[in-house]
């Protein structure tokens, strides 16, 4: 089985939200409120239990005379966010029921027939992706279109993207595609485009790569995400020492008491 991934290239994204719509349509994701945020044209705000693709609208001042941007008009960088399908996934480690699994394509999948809604994955995701749906009670996130991949189809978001901002494919191919695109951008004078690829920290890489311009932090992409499992050793050490101390203290206290009698 190939190890598949998404490459989401912000530099060709037109902010049409076809990916959001297609994701909802294919996966029958319920609506999650109809609110005006006042934050540019972004009214979905963040990934969540019922938003599995989310287009960010990073707004900034334009410099007149470049690419047709008029003075006084803001300009945008759009970027479609998605579950990172971490190589070392916090949600998967945290799941006590075994509902969250690694698929044969390398993605991270929540089996809805097993999830009992304990909510522990929610605090284990360093990207703030997975969430519990209040009315349903279970945790949801991007499935990486596991059903479509199994049928040999492209995930719905990549399928509908009109500009190839979202490309789906083999991990190794996409890495090559990413550097090809970065080279192309640099050749055209766009020197601030970077590949966001969290493979250096404890997350150990992701199945969702992003090309963004400027600082990834502007797109709420964390600079050094850590899978919470890295804290386990220290936590259990403290727990073990404390547990032993409690038992020791109790034994000593009662021994001392019976000597006093």
């Amino acid at each position: 089985m190939p190890t598949t991934a998404f490459l989401t290239d912000s530099t060709v994204c037109i902010g049409c939200k076809a990916c959001e719509v297609a994701c909802k349509a294919w996966n029958e994701v319920p609506q999650d409120g109809y609110v005006w945020t006042g934050l540019s044209y972004d009214n979905t705000k963040a990934l969540g239990h019922s938003t599995w693709r989310h287009v960010k609208f990073v707004e900034h001042e334009a410099v007149p005379g470049r690419g047709g941007h008029a003075a006084g008009q803001p300009t945008w960088s759009f970027s479609s966010d998605v579950c990172k399908h971490c190589e070392h996934a916090g949600c998967l480690d945290a799941c006590p029921t075994g509902s969250i699994v690694r698929t044969e394509f390398g993605g991270v999948f929540v089996q809805p027939d097993i999830c009992n809604g304990c909510g522990y994955c929610v605090v284990a995701c360093p990207f703030g992706v997975i969430d519990r749906r209040p009315d349903d009670g279970r945790a949801f996130k991007c499935t990486f279109c596991y059903d479509r991949q199994k049928a040999g189809l492209t995930p719905a978001c990549a399928q509908v993207c009109p500009t190839e901002s979202i490309v789906f494919g083999d991990m190794a191919d996409l890495r090559r595609e990413a550097s090809r695109r970065l080279d192309g951008l640099a050749a055209r004078g766009v020197t601030d485009a970077v590949l966001y690829d969290a493979h250096e920290g404890s997350v150990g890489g992701t199945h969702a790569l992003f090309i963004v311009r400027g600082d990834p932090v502007a797109y709420n992409l964390p600079p050094k995400p850590d899978v919470p499992s890295v804290y386990l050793r220290r936590a259990w050490r403290s727990a073990f020492v404390t547990a032993a101390s409690l038992i020791g203290a109790a034994l000593i206290a009662f021994a001392a008491q019976s000597h006093a009698h």
Partner: peptide, 13 residues
């Protein structure tokens, strides 16, 4: 729309 022409560098956040 067609993909946008690339504007100026994106300022830090």
């Amino acid at each position: 729309a067609a993909p946008p022409a690339q504007g100026p560098p994106v300022p830090p956040s």
